[in-house]
Amino acid sequence: MPAKYVELKTADVELMEAELRTLCARAGAEAVVLVDLSGVILASHRVSDKIDHLLFAALLSSNFAATEELSRRLGVTGFRIMYHEGKRQNLYFDKVADDTILVVLFRDSNALGRVRLFTEKSIAELAKMVTAATRPAAEAPILPQAHAAAAYLAQMATSIQPGKL
């Protein structure tokens, strides 16, 4: 499996967000988020600004990846769903594609079966969208913004002189 690159055009994200919006309404969820397993949010709906989105994505992805590693070591195949039950809110994870998961946050007043049913309905559509946006890293285009950021860090490396060896 080569390293991959995900390119999301504005229209791609709008389609993903529309699907997440539909899922949120049908499942009665509080929030839904599509995360790749390297720890980056691809699209989300109603994730509170009180949550640090970057940390949230890093923790969700490593949480799910840990379960996958556990299943591999146990020799159990087909692990794709994970559920965390809280006092008032719950988290439901489902695998969308090889490197992408969908996470649904919902209240305990809502039935898990309803969340599961509508999540499964959305997975197929989301998987198509994610697959269409994913390509080998070798095909990644040159991004002038990324070069500008790297140039900025090069400048930082020159200006920050804590001492020489």
């Binding site: 991004l143 990324a146 070069h147 790297a150 090069a154 490396a157 920050i160």
Partner: peptide, 26 residues
């Protein structure tokens, strides 16, 4: 890069170098 990370020596040089590689700048 040689480094004394505790004092920051070599830390940003290293970060800058890996940023160059992953972005394809160098």
């Amino acid at each position: 890069f040689g480094a004394v990370a505790r004092d920051g020596v070599g830390v940003f040089e290293t970060l800058s170098a890996i940023a160059d590689l992953v972005t394809g700048r160098n």
